[in-house]
Amino acid sequence: MAIVKATDQNFSDETTSGLVLADFWAPWCGPCKMIAPVLEELDAELADKVKIVKIDVDENQETAGKYGVMSIPTLILFKDGEPVDKVIGFQPKEALAELVNKHA
């Protein structure tokens, strides 16, 4: 499954069912650029367990505000539309895989 780009308009649709890891990011953010390839690897390895969506906080401030995103990257794990876990800052692939597996 490919990583999905979400917006304020489609975010709730994209996170409504199953396990979804939402990456709140911005193009100018260094740690966001560092975590992007980690998310690509995670998507390739755990596509059967989790869907990954990316949402640009500069273009989608409503959703970022709704979930209290103050620092980026912020990754929020949703299960059937409800946030169940959250990590802030760069995370190694192993830590993200553990986060997903904890809720799978």
Rank of each mutant, 00 (worst) to 15 (best):
M1A: 14
M1K: 13
A2N: 14
I3K: 03
V4E: 14
V4N: 02
V4T: 14
K5W: 01
A6Q: 11
D8C: 02
E14C: 01
E14T: 07
T15L: 04
T15G: 07
T15W: 05
T16H: 12
S17R: 13
G18M: 04
L19S: 13
L19Q: 07
V20N: 06
L21F: 02
L21W: 02
D23A: 05
D23W: 08
A26W: 05
A26S: 12
P27C: 01
P27W: 06
W28C: 11
C29Q: 07
P31I: 11
P31E: 06
K33G: 09
M34P: 03
A36R: 00
A36M: 03
V38H: 07
L39K: 09
E41Y: 08
E41N: 15
E41M: 11
E45F: 02
E45Y: 00
E45R: 13
D48Q: 14
D48C: 03
D48I: 00
D48Y: 01
K49H: 04
V50Q: 01
K51T: 15
V53M: 10
I55P: 12
D56C: 08
D56R: 07
D56Y: 09
D58N: 14
E59R: 11
N60M: 06
N60T: 00
N60H: 00
Q61C: 06
E62P: 00
T63L: 03
G65D: 06
K66S: 07
G68V: 05
G68F: 12
V69K: 05
M70G: 05
S71L: 14
S71A: 15
I72V: 14
I72T: 12
T74P: 13
L75E: 09
I76E: 12
I76K: 01
K79A: 07
K79M: 08
D80S: 11
D80W: 10
E82G: 03
D85S: 15
V87D: 08
F90K: 06
Q91V: 08
E94G: 01
A97H: 04
A97L: 09
E98R: 11
E98V: 09
E98C: 01
L99W: 00
L99V: 08
L99C: 07
L99N: 04
L99D: 04
H103E: 02
H103V: 02
A104P: 06
